[in-house]
Simulated assay, not measured.
Amino acid sequence: MTASLGGAPPEDDNPADEIRIALLTSLSGSAGLFGRAAANCTALAAEEINADGGICGRPVRIEVVDDRTDAATGLARLRDLDRRRGLAAVVGVHSSATFDAVSRHAQASGLPYLYTAANEGSPVQDGTLFRLGESVTDQLARAIPALMRESDGRAWYLIGNDYSWPRAVCAQGGRIAERHGGHVVGRRLVPLGESAFDDVLDDIEASGADLVLSGLVGWSSVDFERRFHAAGLRRSIRTLAPLLEENTREHLGAAAGGVWSCLPYFSALNTAENTDFLRRYRAAFGVWAPSPSALTESAYEGVNLFARAARKAGSPQGTEVARALQGLTPAGPRGTVAVGADGRLRQSMYLAEATTTGFAVRAQLPSGTA
């Protein structure tokens, strides 16, 4: 597979005809649960694009950059790679903090930057920068009332890591819950990477909550759900964790039961397109490779969207690719998606319940506001 991990390749390994796409992700640090699967998905995308003639007759090479779940590290490593290697595009699967740092470099250099992870929302497009991932509103507008109906719960406790995406989850989630007859009984923001939750669990139990909205990410999410389950709170309280995906759930074991998520892709989707994608993925990386998830399959979609736009434009140049992205309607593992004239990716959302072995998809929800 055409990918290198961590940093840049050797200085003398730079064939002039290659189109280099960076995958900026987290292979390590507190959000390092999903980086390996993201790297696999982009490598698979590049292999398939190259088997189909590449982009404008040129082969694609993926360069995997580990931000170590640190915005400054992500910016420094990507900027150095772009300076030395000459990137055609960046696909980003990382935190919003890294996005905020790296987007300024991408805009200044005119580098197409396809941020495919879940995000706060607007602005969706800014020049050659695209936020293609699902917004907080896409995830919560229908998932919150659906879970309230399912559980007959109304009292929400809001928790998240203290940076932009979880803050948006808590703020918008609280407003959506109140709009549908719920009420917020407590909220807490903790540092990124936090693993000590005893006082939070005491606060949740005392609050009278019957539902928790969790904006925790990575290992913080794992530690919280394990402790939540061990404390016996799952018997009476359900959790909606909109960033709980396959690679995080695999670390929960018995603590996964009773946690719900809402994302545009789950590996459990029972469609011909997804079945074929998973077959190709397992054939390439083996049965023990980390499972694709909404975060990591989005990287596969991002590389393919760039390739389609470059082929449509007849060039991998940034401004031409940005124009060509608008109006694309490719079909892939998550179904048919569409890039609107505003640069927004329109796609269905799926409400799923975590189990000890995977996810059970309960409903397909159109994205949008409520």
Rank of each mutant, 00 (worst) to 15 (best):
A322H: 10
F359V: 10
T296E: 05
G314I: 12
L44Y: 03
L27P: 05
N274G: 02
I55Y: 06
T357C: 03
A37N: 10
R175L: 09
I21M: 01
V259E: 06
T25R: 02
P242R: 00
F359I: 08
R104S: 08
A196H: 09
Q347G: 06
E48M: 06
N119C: 13
D203S: 15
D100M: 11
P333T: 11
L87F: 08
R238C: 03
N119D: 13
S151I: 02
D276C: 05
P10S: 12
S4G: 10
G232M: 06
A38M: 06
D162E: 14
A101I: 04
D52R: 15
N119F: 00
A97P: 07
S96I: 02
V303Y: 01
A45T: 13
S164I: 14
S291P: 08
F197I: 10
E250I: 07
R36A: 14
V337G: 09
V287C: 08
L295H: 08
I204F: 04
L81T: 10
A230N: 07
V217K: 02
E11I: 08
E134C: 09
V190H: 05
Y265W: 11
K312Q: 12
G181A: 01
T69I: 11
T319G: 10
T116K: 00
D67T: 03
G7H: 03
A143M: 06
R175C: 01
A39I: 07
R226V: 12
G92H: 15
W165C: 00
Y115G: 07
A255V: 05
W156A: 04
C170D: 12
G253P: 07
I62T: 01
S207F: 01
Q125F: 01
F99E: 12
A31G: 07
D162K: 10
D199V: 05
R167M: 10
L147W: 00
E320T: 13
I176Y: 00
R131Q: 10
A341W: 07
D199N: 12
R308L: 14
H251N: 14
T73A: 14
Y163I: 06
H105D: 07
I159E: 04
S195E: 14
N304A: 01
V185I: 11
A37C: 06
T355W: 00
Y157E: 10
G182C: 09
N304G: 11
V93I: 15
G74W: 00
D152P: 00
D67R: 02
G74A: 03
T25G: 04
L295A: 14
R61I: 00
A255T: 07
S220N: 13
G32Y: 05
A338T: 15
A143V: 07
N50I: 02
E205P: 04
P333K: 09
L213S: 02
R282D: 06
P330G: 12
A118T: 12
Q107W: 04
L44E: 09
F228I: 10
Y265T: 12
D70N: 15
